[in-house]
């Protein structure tokens, strides 16, 4: 089986600015991976390239051996870092939309999660509270049986209870052969659910290691190491 995500010499320029430069990286299946780095280090650029929202300036990015295309989009479930749904739609319409377009969308799972949140199916998305909106987005993304989940800042700016809910949702719903890529700058909060972390700095790979390797080798948490490496 091909690795789920491969980058070779991946480069993305915005004007004269290198958002990613010559990144070579392979993600294996069955891992939860943290994508870490300060703002502007290229995390979101990498994620958008993987989803085909950006075209590489140079190099390749492959999902399951294919450049981003409809076939890769079938197996990638993506949570953008912003609201991405038409907010005038009702929850029930959004559910129908997802099951219309994604063969691997499990209506049952989505219903279960929304029931737990007590979200009214007739409500329009824009009427939900900010927290419930974010949880609904995550529930939709995690209701797909994908091979690769890409979550861009899922815990940015939520309270600790919401954070626990989000982590539980991720752990409960991903299947063991799938890979979950989570970008964040709040490492301490999610360190215990990660297999591996990838540090990006200035669009380049600074570190790619297992969490327990880092703890064994440096005798400190990934969070502490991160603060040391990227201290301003």
């Amino acid at each position: 089986m091909r690795s789920i995500l491969e980058c070779q010499g991946l480069t993305k320029k915005y004007g004269d600015f290198f958002a990613l430069s010559n990144l070579t990286l392979t993600l294996e299946r069955g891992q939860i991976i943290g994508l870490l780095g300060p703002n502007g280090s290229g995390k979101t650029t990498l994620i958008k390239l993987a989803n085909g929202l950006l075209i590489p300036t140079d190099g390749h990015i492959m999902i399951n051996g294919l450049a981003p295309c409809p076939d890769t989009k079938k197996i990638v479930s993506y949570l953008p870092d912003r609201s991405f749904l038409n907010e005038r739609m009702r929850i029930s319409e959004i559910l129908t939309f997802y099951s219309d377009f994604y063969d691997n969308f499990s209506m049952e799972r989505a219903e279960k999660m929304l029931d737990a949140l007590e979200i009214d199916r007739c409500a329009r998305l824009r009427t939900l509270s900010k927290g419930n909106k974010e949880k609904t987005h995550l529930a939709l993304v995690m209701s797909r049986d994908a091979d690769l989940y890409i979550l861009d800042e899922p815990i940015g700016g939520v309270d600790p209870a919401a954070r626990d809910y989000i982590l539980q949702t991720i752990l409960t719903n991903y299947n063991e052969n799938a890979t979950v890529l989570i970008s964040t700058h709040l490492i301490a909060d999610i360190e215990s659910i990660l297999d591996r972390v990838i540090f990006l700095q200035n669009g380049q790979l600074a570190l790619n290691a297992l969490v327990d390797e880092i703890r064994t080798q440096y005798g400190k948490s990934v969070d502490a190491l991160f603060r040391e490496v990227f201290k301003c």
């Binding site: 929202l53 295309c69 912003r82 609201s83 377009f101």
Partner: peptide
């Protein structure tokens, strides 16, 4: 717009 994040990640060309 931001809705493009969903549209362009649907499994369609």
């Amino acid at each position: 717009s931001r809705e493009g994040y969903l549209s362009w990640t649907l499994p369609v060309s």
